[in-house]
């Protein structure tokens, strides 16, 4: 009997998302008053994938993530999160999600372990054959590296420790999908590195993670796949390597002839340099070939975006990436 039930559960479990996508966003649009913030966002995420939503401030990253969390109603488009439309997500759906919120001073009088134990109570009825909920408070405290502060009042934690607690709260229900909105904003480099280790651990445990960041370096370090959001739409989608390869079509060549400096941009650096040698031979000196990195291209785009030339920036970026 139990075996049959089990099999049925599994069969049913696979039905809602036939392609196996944890996240499936199609033509998502959001308008505030007359301002279009999202003008057609499309992306998906597979189970266990770590996806970074990268973009300049004000690009709509937080709006996107809040729609997926079910905290904000969208204007239009089809969205499926764990096979459910977040606008109609029930508590059963909610129990499978983790949301890491930026804490400030809430629950200041609670102790770290006490709060995790308490919040875990809500998840106990949602255990399944595969996932035991909630995460044991002591194990969780250890997993986020707060063991020595477990009995400290939360108001006495440092900023970095609080952030670890935020993550612990986000994962106390052993979520299948975890949302992290600007997780390392305001971190010092040490705290940032520790946080990155923590995200890697979660990713190893097959949790699907969607994080937003405006920091390309962070996206490269954490994500299997980077989505660049700008001008209300996803303008690039791929692994850091893929994006870099797609964008490195332009290269800058620098050289000197008889002490005079020259600079030239070209899409075929090898051929250009071959010609240089043919022309100048041993008069050629100080040769330098530099491909535009992903970061160069991204930074240029952000600068243009922030100086108000949004559409031009997006178009340029699209030209480069395609």
């Amino acid at each position: 009997m139990a075996v049959v039930d089990h099999a049925e559960t599994q069969a049913r479990g696979t039905k809602p998302a036939p392609e196996g996508n944890v996240l499936d966003v199609r033509d998502l649009r959001m308008r505030y008053g007359t301002k279009d913030v999202l003008t057609g966002v499309n992306f998906t995420a597979h189970p266990g994938e770590v996806v970074a939503l990268l973009g300049p401030n004000g690009a709509g990253k937080t709006t996107t993530i809040e729609i997926l969390e079910g905290f904000r109603m969208r204007s239009a488009g089809d969205v499926s999160v764990l096979g459910v439309d977040p606008a109609h997500g029930d508590e059963n759906w909610r129990a499978r999600l983790g949301v890491v919120l930026q804490s400030w001073r809430d629950h200041g009088k609670w102790k770290v372990r006490e709060l995790l134990q308490h919040l875990g109570l809500y998840y106990a009825p949602y255990s399944t054959d595969h996932i035991t909920r909630p995460w044991d408070a002591d194990e969780l405290v250890a997993a986020v590296g707060l063991t020595e502060h477990a009995d400290k009042k939360i108001s006495r934690l440092s900023g970095g420790q609080r952030r670890r607690l935020d993550v612990a709260i986000g994962i106390v229900g052993r979520p299948e999908l975890l949302f992290l909105d600007e997780p390392t904003a305001g971190f010092d480099p040490e705290a940032r590195r520790e946080f990155h280790d923590l995200v890697h651990q979660l990713a190893d445990a097959a949790t699907t993670i969607l994080l937003t960041t405006h920091d390309l370096d962070e996206a490269e370090k954490l994500a299997d796949r980077i989505l660049i959001l700008a001008g209300g739409t996803i303008i690039a989608d791929g692994s850091a390597d893929e994006l870099a390869r797609r964008m490195s079509t332009e290269a800058e060549v620098k050289w000197t002839v008889d002490g005079q400096r020259f600079v030239h941009s070209t899409s075929d650096a090898t051929e250009f340099v071959r010609q240089l040698f043919a022309q100048h031979d041993d008069k050629l000196a100080d040769l330098e070939v530099r491909r535009a990195s992903l970061e160069d291209t991204y930074m240029a785009m952000v600068q243009q975006f922030e100086s108000g030339r949004q559409e031009a920036a997006v178009r340029e970026f699209e030209v480069v990436t395609r």
């Binding site: 969390e69 919120l101 930026q102 400030w104 809500y122």
Partner: peptide
């Protein structure tokens, strides 16, 4: 203001509790 309520909202049946 401090986000306690939002935490409750992010948890299954959190608002009831």
């Amino acid at each position: 203001e401090d986000g306690t309520l939002l935490r409750a909202k992010a948890i299954p049946n959190g608002m009831l509790g």
